[in-house]
Amino acid sequence: MTSIADRLQRNLDASIRAMQELKQQDGTLATFEAAVAATVAAYRNGRRIYIAGNGGSAADAQHLAAEFVSKLARDRAPLAAEALTTDSSILTAIGNDYGYEQVFSRQLAGKAVAGDIFLGITTSGQSPNILRALEQCKRMGVPSIVFLGRDGGPALPLADYGIVVPGQATSTIQELHIVLAHTLCECVEAAIFGD
């Protein structure tokens, strides 16, 4: 039987390995830099970010929206952000009337305008509702960022900025996603409000 200490050590080692590997992926880092620039441009043009995911990634979407609207590292004016995962009436109405795969794309169709930013979070890159949201973004001229894991799945080619992190375990992938999310918000804060 694996001891608690052994299990924790194994998980820490996996997280550290994945983070070290991500640091070496120049292409991924360049894509992330371009995604940050697109987000900064959207905010400078008076636009907003919409964020979505499922399960733990839904919680991460809410977490990141809170960081933008409230603050991350410094006191500053709020930045417009919305998690598309929070309104139970909208989610259940769309899910019931149109299907769960439409819960994010239909919200984008009703709320987003060209020049806003969409951030999808999916460890597998296969979430049907994220795929439909990315397709909706293409139709509307809404730049899309997606945080992914494993091979990126079918979401990777649909996104304007597909960022695939290393790691096989969902937990490791989600740990890296939250590092990306915090860094995105930190970079936007610095660009809009100064270091």
Score class of each variant (00 low, 15 high):
165 V>E: 01
193 F>K: 10
124 S>H: 03
58 A>M: 03
50 Y>R: 12
188 V>A: 09
26 D>C: 00
140 M>E: 07
144 S>V: 07
191 A>F: 06
39 T>P: 05
162 G>A: 09
83 A>Q: 07
172 T>G: 03
15 S>P: 12
96 N>Y: 08
90 I>E: 05
161 Y>N: 02
17 R>L: 10
17 R>S: 12
85 T>M: 10
62 Q>R: 10
37 A>N: 14
76 R>P: 02
49 I>G: 07
77 A>T: 05
130 I>H: 13
23 K>L: 03
159 A>N: 07
168 Q>C: 10
98 Y>E: 14
89 S>V: 11
141 G>Q: 04
92 T>V: 09
28 T>D: 00
49 I>W: 05
141 G>T: 01
118 F>P: 03
90 I>Q: 15
129 N>F: 07
192 I>R: 11
99 G>Y: 12
57 S>G: 05
91 L>N: 08
18 A>G: 03
174 Q>K: 07
2 T>M: 14
75 D>G: 13
153 G>Q: 03
112 A>H: 07
37 A>K: 14
132 R>G: 04
115 G>M: 11
131 L>H: 07
87 D>E: 02
194 G>N: 10
49 I>P: 05
99 G>N: 10
193 F>A: 06
16 I>W: 14
71 K>M: 10
56 G>P: 09
121 I>A: 00
161 Y>V: 00
158 L>T: 01
24 Q>C: 13
20 Q>H: 14
87 D>S: 01
125 G>N: 07
42 A>F: 08
83 A>F: 04
177 H>T: 02
97 D>L: 07
70 S>F: 00
15 S>M: 10
145 I>T: 03
77 A>V: 00
186 E>V: 02
56 G>F: 01
73 A>W: 13
111 K>C: 08
163 I>M: 04
24 Q>Y: 03
64 L>Q: 15
111 K>M: 09
65 A>S: 15
67 E>Q: 14
62 Q>V: 03
2 T>W: 15
82 E>I: 12
54 N>W: 03
55 G>P: 00
137 C>A: 14
165 V>R: 06
69 V>T: 13
155 A>N: 06
40 V>F: 06
9 Q>G: 14
98 Y>L: 14
101 E>L: 13
112 A>L: 03
195 D>A: 11
94 I>S: 11
45 N>Q: 11
183 T>L: 09
20 Q>D: 12
20 Q>C: 08
136 Q>K: 15
104 F>E: 05
83 A>R: 13
6 D>T: 11
31 T>C: 05
70 S>V: 05
45 N>T: 04
